[in-house]
């Protein structure tokens, strides 16, 4: 005998210090924020409370983007295209959506962050990253 049982539970996750700053800057300033680690001399995207590699805390917030470079992508039917993008000024890549239509994405292609009009301090305040047309249109 198989029985299907459902549960419905609301969760709410604190973004924390750096996470809050990152989301607030999306909402209020349409701005991507990264963190500068003075130990390993890298700028991490997105902003975070401590360096994942050297463990250092108290990182400095820096503006990154709005331009970015495509690092990797994966097309997921029904979900769209997930992409790893490296915002300008950052040394690491962040994960978001690649906006279409895209025929043949190439690594290193230039992108630009696209913000939603309605923003609430959420990762989806970013609609995704769109390919910058070469002719400047």
């Amino acid at each position: 005998m198989i029985r299907e049982e459902a549960i419905k539970i609301p969760f709410q996750y604190a973004a924390g210090t750096a996470g809050s700053e990152f989301l607030i800057n999306l909402r209020d300033h349409r701005q991507l924020t990264g963190s500068r680690c003075s130990d390993c001399e890298r700028t991490l995207a997105p902003a975070r409370a401590y360096c994942p590699d050297c463990g250092r805390e108290g990182l400095h917030s820096v503006n990154i983007g709005p331009g970015a470079e495509l690092v990797s992508w994966t097309i997921v039917p029904d979900k769209g295209v997930f992409a790893l993008v490296r915002p300008d000024g950052a040394d690491t890549a962040m994960l978001h959506k690649l906006l279409g239509p895209i025929d043949d994405p190439q690594p290193g292609i230039r992108l630009q962050v696209v913000f939603r009009e309605e923003r609430s301090g959420h990762i989806n305040d970013i609609e995704g990253f769109a390919i910058v047309q070469e002719n400047g249109e």
């Binding site: 996750y13 604190a14 924390g16 210090t17 409370a49």
Partner: peptide, 9 residues
Amino acid sequence: DVSQPELVR
């Protein structure tokens, strides 16, 4: 005031 990883930290 802190995320789960920050609390653990």
